[in-house]
Design a protein around this nucleic acid. Structure first.
Lengths: 187, 187
DNA sequence: GTCTATAAGAGGATAGAC
DNA sequence: GTCTATCCTCTTATAGAC
């Protein structure tokens, strides 16, 4: 019932990475909080980068799934809304995790270029699908804009003092993203 | 016609800060590209942080102006669109500059907390104004979402292969942000 | 699995010659 | 104004005892 040291490490690291940023977080700091020494961390994870990768894996996986699901659907206004909802769910399910990318993109890029590239690719796949077949430049821009709106699931915490219930956050942002994309909202 | 060394430094630093991120950019690197040594940089700027501040000042100023202008207007759908347009203009006018904040928020926070706080404050002022008087939670969320859309002025470059004319970028994003905010778009 | 000790190097910053 | 040389601190990472 020790509760796995590896998990404790990931937990602390996640917390620090997503608040301070990946780069501003030192292994010494992590070790300290976990109650270990740096050297012991290295027993569990061979490098800081590997630690990041291990932490971030579920989010990547979520996005990958969302992208694949999108591509299996025919493009239509209803389906676009469904897809936006799926992506939003991934964000909400991994709020603090996603914060790492939001807080310190540059750090993640330099530490794990492949990871980042994968994320960009999935972003491209999603916006491409959202833009629809034979998209104009405007279609593509609006697809990007809609995805940006979903990012508010993370940033809103910074600007709002009060807690927002997750259902409301989801409902409002989904409507807003749909509108940003250029679709009429449901009445 | 030497073209001011200070300016050359700022130019190179801007380029590196906005691509690699503030933290991933070392003074050695900047100095090298400018054709100086680190020590010489320090003659012109007393610290890395001061260099950042000097570079970023115009953008902060732009936002400050935008926030002040907003607050001088009565809240209405038309004015909301005007305000969004002003903010968008600031983003477009300072694209690479704004990229610093987008690329490495964590770095900026840790290097220049005051600067960052000021930015947050202006973000708060703008979203507060956009949300209108006596806003519901939904109003506030949509205001944040609309601001996020404007961020696409920067991120779109990552996702689109082709160059987009600035007028089109402006027009499309303004419509999209307006829609995200929950206002009908002009026909 | 966890420790102490240390390597190896980069970073920001300064002193002082020219 | 620009240089060389150096300081100091902190980082990631490793070696090897227990």
């Amino acid at each position: 019932m020790v509760g796995d040291t590896r998990e404790a490490i990931r937990e602390v690291a996640l917390e620090l990475f997503s608040t301070r940023g990946f780069d501003q977080t030192s292994l010494r700091e992590i070790a300290e909080r976990v109650g270990l020494t740096k050297a012991s961390l290295y027993y569990h994870y061979p490098s800081k980068q590997e630690l990041l990768t291990a932490i971030v894996a579920p989010l990547i996986e979520g996005w990958r799934t969302a992208a694949a699901e999108a591509e299996s659907l025919a493009h239509s206004p209803e389906n676009a809304r469904v897809v936006l909802g799926r992506v939003l769910d991934v964000m909400l399910r991994n709020r603090s995790l996603a914060g790492i990318f939001l807080r310190d993109p540059a750090g993640v890029v330099s530490a794990a270029g492949t990871l980042w590239q994968e994320m960009l690719d999935m972003g491209t796949r999603l916006t491409t699908w959202l833009a629809g077949p034979d998209p104009t430049t405007a279609d593509r821009l609006r697809a990007i804009a809609a995805m940006e709106v979903l990012g508010a699931a993370l940033t809103s915490v910074t600007y709002l003092k009060e807690e927002v219930a997750e259902d409301e956050l989801r409902a409002v942002l989904l409507d807003s993203a749909t509108a940003a994309l250029g679709l009429a909202e449901p009445s």
